[in-house]
């Protein structure tokens, strides 16, 4: 009876697995965080497949064995109240399964919230990722540059994305590098990720934020530290500065394509509730007591220049620092070379 449906499903899933989708993005991780999640997912699928198997075997056996057409006409099913032992079994075993999964969940959640194991001693590269309708702004405070709708990162270096939004809640998601997290107008969220393989990875906003949500995709290009340094220097020499008026225009334009600037918007429009010391403090638009208290605890530095980071990424002490900036403009860097792998 119902087997027809189940067979069809099995058949379909096989077809799906074997044909078109040989690479399932989420299960094709290119960084430690995404790898932890991929392993967690595969582990839970295996556990759940076991549960499904038990239910399906009992289901098929009972359906085949006790169908009315097979039993005698005068067969009278017995009255059964239940069975303590059986019920104890199907309470205990699920509790054990849930306990195992809980441990896995707590561990893996803790792991992906922190800097990935093996990368703790490196200073993370801080990038502010903010969304506005309907685009992504990436500000690199250390380098003093900003991009729109594309993100370049060095491989094998922990990246600390600080997420917030100039409008509706969005969610930044680069499935091959890490899980997603919300960007909101009221607070800054931190997303830790590392790319351990060079390549181009699709990132997007996964949380519905209005008409342009479907178009809020961006390319994440993981490049060697050397190439990355070169790119940063190019941007600093060739791209124009981002001033407040231009930023306001940018915010109110729905679709802008890629943009590159040699300064960030953080100086005149800082992240909400931000009290990291290297930032300049201006009055919060969304004033609340907590923010004001934070400001009291972390007063504006007398000379903001003092606390500024140098622009040199602290990647690998053995690797030579990036040399003189290249002559090419930023636009000429080949973003497509890594595509289609």
């Amino acid at each position: 009876m119902k087997k027809r449906g189940s067979l069809l499903v099995l058949f379909m899933s096989l077809v799906l697995l074997l044909s078109g989708c040989s690479s399932i993005t989420v299960l094709d991780p290119k960084g430690p965080a995404a790898r932890t999640l991929s392993d967690t997912i595969l582990f839970s699928i295996a556990m759940m497949a076991g549960v499904l198997l038990v239910v399906y075997v009992l289901y098929v056996v009972f359906l085949v064995k006790y169908r009315g057409s097979k039993t005698k006409d005068d067969y009278m099913p017995p009255h059964e109240e239940g069975n303590k032992w059986l019920e104890a079994i199907w309470i205990t075993i699920p509790i054990i399964i849930v306990a195992v999964l809980s441990v896995v969940t707590v561990q893996s959640t803790g792991a992906v919230e922190k800097v990935a194991a093996g990368y703790e001693d490196q200073k993370p590269l801080v990038i502010y990722a903010s969304s506005s309708n309907w685009k992504w702004h990436f500000s690199y405070p250390e380098e003093g540059i900003e991009t729109v709708n594309y993100l370049n990162i060095p491989v094998n270096r922990p990246i600390e994305l600080r997420l917030y939004s100039f409008g509706p809640i969005t969610s930044l998601w680069i499935p091959q590098l890490a899980g997603q997290k919300y960007a909101m107008s009221d607070m800054v969220n931190t997303l830790n990720l590392v790319a351990d393989e060079q390549g181009s990875y699709l990132g997007r906003n996964s949380n519905f934020s209005g008409q342009g949500t479907a178009h809020m995709e961006f390319e994440t290009l993981a490049m060697s530290p050397k190439e990355y340094g070169k790119w940063v220097d190019e941007v600093k020499t060739t791209a124009s500065k981002l001033d407040e008026t231009e930023f306001k225009t940018l915010l109110s334009t729905s679709y802008v394509g890629r943009k590159t600037f040699s300064s960030t918007h953080l100086s005149f429009s800082p992240a909400p509730g931000d009290h990291s010391d290297h930032m300049k403090h201006t009055d919060m638009e969304n004033g609340n007591k907590e923010h004001q208290e934070n400001k009291a605890e972390h007063p504006v530095p007398a000379n903001p220049e003092e606390t500024k980071f140098d622009a040199i990424p602290n990647v690998n002490p053995n690797e030579p620092l990036p040399q003189s900036p290249a002559e090419d403009s930023t636009e000429d860097i080949d973003h497509t070379s890594h595509k289609g792998k």
Binding site: T36, L37, T40, S44, L101, W173, Q180
Partner: peptide, 13 residues
Amino acid sequence: MLAMASADYQYHN
């Protein structure tokens, strides 16, 4: 599977 917070970072939305 969705209840597992870490994995949900990949399933959410």
